[in-house]
Design a protein around this nucleic acid. Structure first.
Lengths: 143, 143
DNA sequence: TTGAAATTGATAAATCGTCTCAAAAAGAGT
DNA sequence: ACTCTTTTTGAGACGATTTATCAATTTCAA
C-alpha cells in the first residue's frame, strides 16, 4: 500500500467534486509528483517519458495545474520557469544571498514564521508556503 | 529640482564605474521609475509612450535591468510577469498572494524586518533588499 | 454496453523577455 | 566644435515557457 494515501484521497475528492475523471495519466503523474519536493513541468515530462513515452507536455502542465487547484501543489515562479512545490513536504528554509559573490546561506527562523502567520491572519489569508530571500553583502564582500 | 538626488547620483556612479553612458532614455525612464513603488516593463512602456513615442520596449527592459544592477531596482517574478520594485521604497515590498484567485495584498511589518536584520547580522550579512512572499488562500477562496 | 462528457496528444498560438544589428548618440581627446 | 571610438538605441527576429485548439480516445454512470 502506498504511503501517499492522504494525497491520493485528496485528489480523488477534488476530482469527484468537480466532475473530473480519474485517468491513468493523472495517477501516473501524481505518483511521480509525490516523490518530489518540487519539480518543473519539463523535468516531469522527461521523467515520465520512461513510464509512458506518449504522455504529452500539455497533459503534464494541465495535471500540475490541477494539483494546484486540488491543494496538493503550489506553483512558484522561479527565474524563467515555474516550480511546482509538493505542499506535503514541510521542510522549509529561507535564503541569504550575497549580491556580490553569489554566496547563499540557508536559515530558518521560527519568530519570523510566527509573524508571517500573524500578518496572514490579519488579512484573512491562510498560508500554505512562503518565500523569503534577503539580498545583501556577505562579510567578505563588505570590504 | 528633483527630490530623487540620491538615486540619480547612485545611477550616475554606477554608469561611471562601468563605462556606461548617461542617455536621454535612461534619464527619462529613471525619472518615471522613481515615482513608482513597482512597475512592469509593459506598464512602463505604455507610460513612457506619452513622453517619447519612439522609446522601444527593449530599451525599457534593458534599462530596468540596469537599475537592478545599479541597486535601484529589484526584479521579482510575479505571476507570468516580472515586477521591478523601487528599492528606495523600503518596507513596502512584501506580498500576500492568493494561489487560487491571484489576489495580492501588500503589507509591511517592522518586526519581521527587524528579525531579518538580526538573522543577517548573525550571518555576517548586510541586507540591501529583500523579498518576502506568503502564498496561500484569501478569505474568499478558502470556502 | 452504450453514450454523453471529460481527457488526451500533437501542435498552433500566445506571452514574455532577450538578442541582433545597422543607425544614432555619447563623451573623451583634440 | 570636430573627430573618433564606444555604447546605446529601436525595430523586429528569436527563444523559452505556457496555454489554447481540436479531433480522437477514454472514462464512468446508467
Amino acid at each position: 500500500m502506498s504511503k501517499h494515501q492522504k494525497e491520493i484521497a485528496a485528489l480523488k475528492e477534488h476530482l469527484g467534486k468537480h466532475q473530473l475523471k480519474c485517468t491513468r495519466q493523472r495517477e501516473l503523474i501524481l505518483d511521480a509528483f509525490l516523490k518530489q519536493e518540487h519539480i518543473t513541468a519539463e523535468e516531469m515530462y522527461h521523467q515520465m517519458a520512461k513510464k509512458d513515452p506518449h504522455l504529452g507536455l500539455a497533459t503534464i502542465y494541465r495535471t500540475l495545474n490541477l494539483f494546484c487547484e486540488a491543494g496538493l501543489a503550489q506553483a512558484r515562479h522561479f527565474g524563467t520557469q515555474t516550480q511546482y512545490d509538493n505542499v506535503s513536504h514541510k521542510g522549509h528554509h529561507d535564503h541569504l544571498i550575497c549580491t556580490d559573490c553569489g554566496k547563499i546561506v540557508e536559515f530558518a527562523n521560527c519568530d519570523i514564521e510566527r509573524l508571517q502567520e500573524e500578518v496572514a491572519t490579519q488579512n484573512g489569508f491562510t498560508i500554505k508556503t512562503h518565500r523569503l530571500e534577503l539580498y545583501g553583502l556577505c562579510s567578505r564582500c563588505r570590504h
